[in-house]
């Protein structure tokens, strides 16, 4: 937990962040974004700064398993959350299926948007497993990831090199390769409504 006194005038806090399974204690300016905390304080430069305003997706990380823009999250608000960055996806030398699919499909060129694309794709797969609809999901029936679904769901990650035509099949490959895994927890609890 943060040690901030809620009545205080202090503009800094000493806090603990859980990143890729490890806990880090940091003294941070409240202005420090989660992205800058990762990049400038923890040496985790995999998450990229492309715009610093939530307009490009290069900073995408997973917060409690959900994809978010780390540039718009103040680090002090991430206390108690499990943060996963691109550095935390592989299991030792074994790449995450999404990482492997990006290599196999040449789904990147300069590589700068790539960590965000990959974290976003990991989030997309979890969201699809949970049955979350997208703007192109038909009203009836579940979610079937196809090209149109992946294009829509990956739209929050800009790629100026124009690798989209390879990113889409890479995400579909990873979806096919992934073993069934639990979806992410949603606010909907069966039984409450009926």
């Amino acid at each position: 937990m943060t040690t901030t006194d809620t009545r205080s005038q202090s503009t800094t806090s000493t806090l603990r962040l859980q990143v890729n399974g490890r806990e880090h204690e940091l003294a941070l300016d409240h202005r420090t974004s989660l992205l800058d905390a990762l990049r400038e304080h923890l040496g985790l430069t995999g998450s990229k700064k492309g715009c610093d305003h939530g307009q490009c997706g290069a900073c995408t990380v997973l917060l409690d398993g959900r994809r978010v823009n780390a540039c718009l999250i103040l680090a002090v608000t991430a206390v108690g959350r499990e943060i996963t960055t691109v550095e935390g996806l592989a299991d030792g030398e074994d790449l995450h299926p999404v990482q492997q699919a990006f290599i196999d499909r040449d789904a990147f060129q300069c590589g700068y948007c790539t960590p965000g694309q990959i974290c976003s794709a990991v989030g997309v797969l979890a969201e699809a497993r949970s049955g979350w609809p997208s703007a192109v999901t038909p009203p009836e029936g579940g979610v079937q990831l196809d090209e149109a679904e992946v294009r829509e769901r990956m739209s929050g990650n800009l790629c100026r090199c124009g690798a989209y035509a390879n990113i889409v099949p890479a995400v579909l490959d990873a979806a096919a390769a992934e073993l069934p895994a639990p979806g992410i927890e949603t606010a909907y609890h069966e039984g409450e409504s009926r």
């Binding site: 939530g54 989030g123 703007a135 009203p139 909907y188």
Partner: peptide
Amino acid sequence: AADPRIRAAYPMLSQALLSGASGQL
């Protein structure tokens, strides 16, 4: 947006949410 009650009873609401911003936002 993903809530089944919202999707069934108020489709415009779910669709409006899903048409906004990005998955991350």
